[in-house]
């Protein structure tokens, strides 16, 4: 118990986060214009980079300040640190409940849109990159914690499917906020989809990715900020509730079937070595 408390009250860690937060907020939002729109750099992205820069696993010299036990202590704090943010999102959704109910069918059905990863990523992984059964774990979902649990349960994390889901999980952890901020910035300014649709798509079942996605969207279309946050937040709650079922009963069976249909059934033994 004492050890847990030492970890929770790791002053070196919290002080570092405080300083990083101040620096990141002082820099503020920066917009970089590109051809089809602009990419928005957000304080939360700087905070992640600054966190990496003082991480001894990334920068060896950082070990003089942040030790291994600080790194270990930080991990369980991530989900706690996102809680006030999630609470704030709740208070944005509540007042807009009538508009959310109006958008109900779209909001519910767009959860199925998470299967888009199978349409876009899976064929590339199997046919173009010639990946083996790794591609099943990698492509059936956006690979956040509940999806890892599905793969761990069905194949074990030592399997090729496990390696696939872990690979995408780690890339998502390292680059997910950047990727979603860029996606949202580009689509917000490209005008292909309505802002409401893009807002709903931001709810992918990860607090930090949603933050990056909605932050970029709301900075691009500030006059619709409240609506963006409410729709994204509602979609995110739905994903928390439905994501695991969509994964187990729809996404994973489809991915398995497609893998066989693509004629890779017999390659499982040799692939991924």
């Amino acid at each position: 118990m004492q050890r847990t408390m030492d970890m929770v009250l790791d002053w070196r860690l919290h002080l570092s986060v405080l300083v990083i937060t101040i620096i990141s907020e002082l820099i503020g939002v920066i917009a970089i214009p590109i051809g089809i729109g602009s990419i928005l750099l957000l304080p939360l992205l700087y905070a992640f980079i600054l966190g990496l820069l003082i991480n001894p696993n990334v920068i060896k010299g950082a070990g003089v300040w942040i030790k291994d036990n600080d790194v270990r202590a930080a991990s369980p704090l991530i989900v706690i640190a996102i809680m006030p943010f999630i609470a704030k999102f709740g208070t944005i959704i509540g007042p807009q409940m009538e508009q959310i109910i109006d958008a109900g069918p779209a909001l519910l059905l767009q959860e199925l849109g998470n299967l888009g990863t199978i349409v876009i990523a899976f064929p590339v992984a199997v046919l173009a990159l010639r990946m083996g059964r790794e591609s099943i774990g990698a492509c059936f979902s956006v690979a956040r914690e509940p999806n890892i649990a599905i793969i761990a349960d069905k194949y074990g994390l030592k399997s090729q499917e496990g390696a696939g889901v872990m690979g995408v999980y780690v890339i998502g952890t390292l680059f997910g906020t950047f990727i979603f901020a860029i996606l949202a910035s580009i689509f917000a300014t490209a005008g292909l989809f309505s802002v409401e649709a893009l807002a709903m798509a931001c709810g992918i079942g990860s607090g930090s990715m949603m933050a990056a996605c909605t932050g970029a969207l709301a900075s691009a279309v500030p006059e619709m900020k409240e609506q963006i946050l409410a729709l994204a937040g509602a979609s995110n709650v739905l994903t928390y509730a439905t994501g695991i079922y969509l994964g187990v009963f729809v996404a994973l069976p489809i991915t398995e079937k497609l893998y066989d249909l693509m004629g890779r059934k017999d390659k499982s033994a040799q692939a991924g070595e």
């Binding site: 992640f48 966190g51 003082i54």
Partner: peptide, 12 residues
């Protein structure tokens, strides 16, 4: 969301 991502960076 900013402090959360700072923890996330340190936790890698």
């Amino acid at each position: 969301a900013t402090p959360c991502l700072a923890y996330a960076g340190i936790a890698i």
